[in-house]
Amino acid sequence: MAHLSTNTPAVDVYLYSFGNSNARIVLHHVAYGDVSPYEKVAAGEYTVAMRAAGAPGASKPVLSTSINVAPGGAYTVAGVGPEAGLRLQVLTDQLTTPKGKALVRVIQASMHQEKVTVRLNGTDLANEIAFSHVSSYTAVPPGLLSVHVTGPSESATRTVKLTPGSIHTLVVLDGASSLAVDDLIDAQGSKVVPNGGVRTGFGGTAARPGAALLPWGSAVAAGLLLAVGGALFASRRRRPALHAR
C-alpha cells in the first residue's frame, strides 16, 4: 500500500476479501510518501478501500478498488493523483530479474514538478514522466549508482545500492523543500546465485554398504553352496559304481 498523493491527508487503508465486510488487513494513518511492507494474502479477489485517517471502519470509503491476486504475484496499491482526482492504482510488481541484473522503475509522485526525467548513471529510467504516472521496469547493471531527477525548476540527486537480483521502485516525491527520491525494495534475492545442489552430508546416517550388501551377499553364498552341494552329491554317488566295475 502506498500513499503517493501529495495534497491528500493521511488515510486508513482497508483490505477485504471480496464480498466479506470484515477487513483482512487495516493500515492506520498512512500519510503521503508512506509505503507499507508487503502483506501475505491468499490468492483471490480483494477490495482495497481508503478512508480518512480515524474515520469509522463502517463509514463509506473515500475510494475503493478491486484487485485480483494471482498465486505468487506481488502488487502495490497506490493512491495517486491530486486530492481532487485521487485514484487507487494497482501496480503489478515484477519478481524476476535477468541474470546478474537489477530492475528499477519510477513512480512520479511530485505534483510541484509536473514532469520529471530520471536518470541512473546516465541511463534514462523515465523521460519527461508526468505526475501520477509509473514507468516500466528497466534492467540495469548492479552497483552503487547515482540517481539524478530533473524537473522544470527543481532537481535531486541520491545514490542507490542495487544488488544483482534485486528489484527497486524509485518514488519521486515533493520533499519539505525540494524534490526527494525514495528507494523502495520491491523484491530481492541472492546477489550471486550458486550452481546446483548443496553438499551437506557425508553418509554417516545412510545405510552402510556392508549393511545393504549383507542380505545379497548371504544369498550369493547360499546359492553357491546349494550349487556346489548339488554337484558334489551327483558326482559322489556315481563314484562307487565306477569302482565296482
Binding site: 544369498a219 546359492g223 546349494l226 556346489v228
Partner: peptide
C-alpha cells in the same frame, strides 16, 4: 535342479 537353482540364486 539344486545346481541350477543355486547358480540362479547366486
Amino acid at each position: 535342479a539344486a545346481l541350477i537353482a543355486g547358480l540362479l540364486v547366486a
